[in-house]
Write a protein that binds this DNA or RNA. Structure first.
Lengths: 378, 378
DNA sequence: GCCTCTGATTCAATCGATTGAAGTGTTGCC
DNA sequence: GGCAACACTTCAATCGATTGAATCAGAGGC
């Protein structure tokens, strides 16, 4: 069993949940040869463990000749550095935990790649978790990471994450950086793009094309990205004097399958929208295929815009208009913030939201002359 | 700097690459309050650290009343178990490393999810690495994991991985399981599906539909999956008495973009293939969109089959015929094998390859009567 | 009264690397 | 010759949890 987390405070407490290990005679080293230690090498080379330790880390304290001798020996003997031991002593694990809701989403894969590249450069290993927007799963993962004494946490917070939990983590001394989604009131840096602006760009583009019935499909409105893109959509509509309440607005959807399933609802709406702003590209892809199957040709009979500009967007038929929100920049920035915090510099100023870019392609033509939905004014 | 790995043997040696830590007065605990230890709690409760340790792990050696008292205190005080310390003592880290070439591929995401679910149940944390088919990247990752003393490695070996490296790892005592791709001569279990059979199924289906010009597009022929699917394609053709040498065969491609780019070559081939067997769904998706753009309607003018049956396959237009190779089963099986090895049971018998399933959909109709490529016999 | 047994608890060594302080030996300078 | 400075090297304590062996209290048997 695992000690249950208490009701209130940051639930980072935890106890080892495993059953007692089937005891082996000598502690550790269950199977396979005993591993070489610093001490073994010190003995073999007739120096102290201190010297070996320092030499392997290129300390200027050891004479170059000694250092080379030691390194050569380590290499030849197949020495493998033991980070558990080092971590115990230094209280640095060189591990960073990353929690997102869906690594299957190419957008996160992109963020993750950038993070990994930057952090890998500093010898940090990255642990990923797919929390699937489940707070309990997310918490379990964070608990485990805390037990492993990770050096920092990068979190795209699950819907429903309490701000006290995030702040509690930060207060306990571990560097935390939020990405993609904000958690209102959190006292940690947040790296995200400006979703309001991005949504506004794309919806304004649809309006400029002449559309007046513009549906928004998808997005968890409890998450900051869902909320903000929805807000941007509303702002753009209002700005153009279009009645927001008269627009189709379907929340909560997230995946390609969801997009597919939403088509029935979309086509039966009256007045039928002439344009759709999808929360993300996955949903847009789902819409594209299901619409075509329903005999409504996207990019001709109806305009569809996505968000994220993931890999497949440009190559679809029709090529998908989307908003590129610079996942690599988010990953790189988050990594840099992380490293700075780990180095001991508290990050106080919040990084500015990254401004996304609209990429107009074929999927968002002007409304079909004489199409439905035209009749109705604002 | 990092000690360079030697020419020959398994390059798992390594030394700490980081610069010396900017020394803080008290070792460890850079920032934030000192964390509670077993000792602290022992003192507070007037018991020994041994009792606390045993109590938290539900040992029958401690009296139930004592155990509850200790657990309650741990919870209230916010104790966080230190796995570095435990790992040092027990030589068990409760971490498993997973290396694949592309987590972006939904197929691997599926495998990974299954792995994570199964291993998470045993309190194992999963570390992933995207080696991008780069042997050096893969090796760097493995080195780091060895330093962290992971309990096991699950590897989809990068193209170019040497069998000695894999066997060297295994010999050094760490449980290793290969997935998806075989490495000839490796003395470790391999969990994979039967790619020869899968390819054969789908190509035989195309032949049964009446096709005689069946191209194969994509797959790294140096990897076992690329090699085997290519072999299955050839076998099916030979079986039907079709001249393999007369078929278009484009190796090395892997991504959607690659598929898109291959269309020019595909359409200019003479005789032009009436059917295509794509190495994976990503390539098939690329083909689908680029073909339609070129005015050749897939599922009518040309038959396209994919492989992996990933999420998007069924929902494309036309719905993609594909081979489902059971990623979740691969993940679950690999996890089980891993746990068995970790528990000390050496796995000697090789698991049987998993038999994939053909899923026929709209994208593979019979050849168009009177179409090109018909003229030419075997 | 003495001994054994059992159940609960504690002792103390251990895992392997790190690092402040202390200890060498050599060189250089006055 | 004396002494400081310097360049290396070593000593030894330490990080925090685990666990085989030892201890201890109380019950029970003869």
């Amino acid at each position: 069993m695992t000690i249950k987390t208490p009701k209130g405070p940051p639930a980072v407490q935890a106890a080892p949940g495993e059953p007692l290990v089937a005891s082996s005679r000598e502690p550790g080293r269950a199977r396979g040869a005993r591993r070489l230690t610093l001490g073994d090498m010190a003995e073999a080379l007739q120096v102290s463990t201190a010297t070996v330790s320092l030499a392997l880390r290129d300390s200027p304290l050891v004479a170059p000749a000694t250092r080379e001798r030691i390194k050569a020996h380590a290499l030849a003997a197949g020495y493998v550095y033991n980070r558990s031991a080092a971590a115990l002593r230094t209280a640095r694990s060189n591990m960073i935990g990353v929690a997102v809701h869906d690594i299957l989403n190419p957008y996160f894969a992109e963020v993750f790649r950038a993070l990994e590249d930057e952090l890998g450069r500093e010898n940090q290993v990255v642990l990923i978790c797919n929390h699937r927007d489940d707070v309990a799963r997310q918490q379990r993962f964070i608990d485990t990471l805390m037990q492993h004494r990770v050096d920092g946490l990068v979190i795209c917070a699950s819907v429903g994450t309490r701000v006290e939990d995030i702040n509690g983590l930060a207060d306990s001394g571990i560097p935390v950086t939020l990405i993609c989604r904000d958690v209102a009131g959190a006292r940690v840096p947040v790296v995200r793009s400006d979703d309001v602006a991005g949504a506004r760009m794309v919806v304004s583009h649809l309006i400029a094309q002449g559309h007046r019935q513009i549906a928004m499909i998808g997005g968890r409105r409890q998450s900051s990205s869902g909320h903000d893109r929805n807000l941007g959509w509303k702002l753009a509509l209002e700005e153009a004097g279009i009645d927001v309440a008269a627009q189709l607005d379907i929340p909560e959807l997230m995946t390609t399958a969801d997009g597919r399933d939403a088509v029935a609802q979309l086509l039966s709406a009256t007045p039928r929208p002439t344009a759709v702003f999808a929360f993300n590209d996955l949903i847009a892809h789902g819409l594209l295929s299901a619409l075509r199957r329903a005999g409504v040709e996207p990019g001709r009979d109806i305009a569809i815009a996505g968000y994220d500009d993931t890999d497949g967007a440009a190559s679809r038929t029709p090529a998908l208009t989307s908003v590129w929100n610079k996942p690599d920049e988010i990953g790189r920035t988050a990594a840099a913030l992380m490293l700075r915090q780990i180095a001991g510099a508290p990050v106080t100023e919040m990084p500015a939201p990254i401004l996304p870019e609209l990429r107009v392609r074929e999927s968002t033509p002007p409304p079909k002359p004489g199409g439905e939905g035209q009749a109705r004014g604002a």
